[in-house]
Amino acid sequence: MGVTLRYPFVSIEAPPEYRGVPHIDPELCIGCGACVNACPPDALMRIDDLKNGTREIVLDIGRCIRCARCEEVCPTGAVKMTGRFEVASLDRRDHVEVVRLRLVRCEACGEYTDYTERQVVKALQILPEEEYDAEEIKAYSRICRRCRRKLSALGAIEASRRFAP
């Protein structure tokens, strides 16, 4: 056998810094979809189910070109390239990875919004509390865009009445 690598019968490690298939850490993923926007071959998808209030982040490693753009843009470090490369399969369904997250339900109208519970938690982590009214922001984050706009308009009308009755 001389020079030949005895490969499938011995296990080998990928070289350091090798870009293998990516993997989504479901503990860290907030479902923001930054990776979906960055993915050049659309291997990552964001599928919202507004009826049941779930968001699916789907990764198909059979479409992935391993460019690591998702790893670069992920704000929480949930997507990481792994050293794994032994991903051949007879069934394409083996290549799919799904992370299911919960969407925020609007407290005013009861419909689901287009952002997840975890996104709200993360956004509140980033906001500097001393510069904003944290309580007001927290209350507003539980309300969908349409209701928020309605509230702001009503507030403006109310305020203008005070000055010009």
Binding site: E97, V98, R100
Partner: peptide, 20 residues
């Protein structure tokens, strides 16, 4: 000659802990 190493993965990310 070898075993299959991949399988479909589905995760429910229900917790609200995003790490600090």
């Amino acid at each position: 000659l070898v075993e299959k190493r991949v399988r479909p993965e589905e995760h429910e990310a229900a917790g609200l802990e995003v790490g600090r």
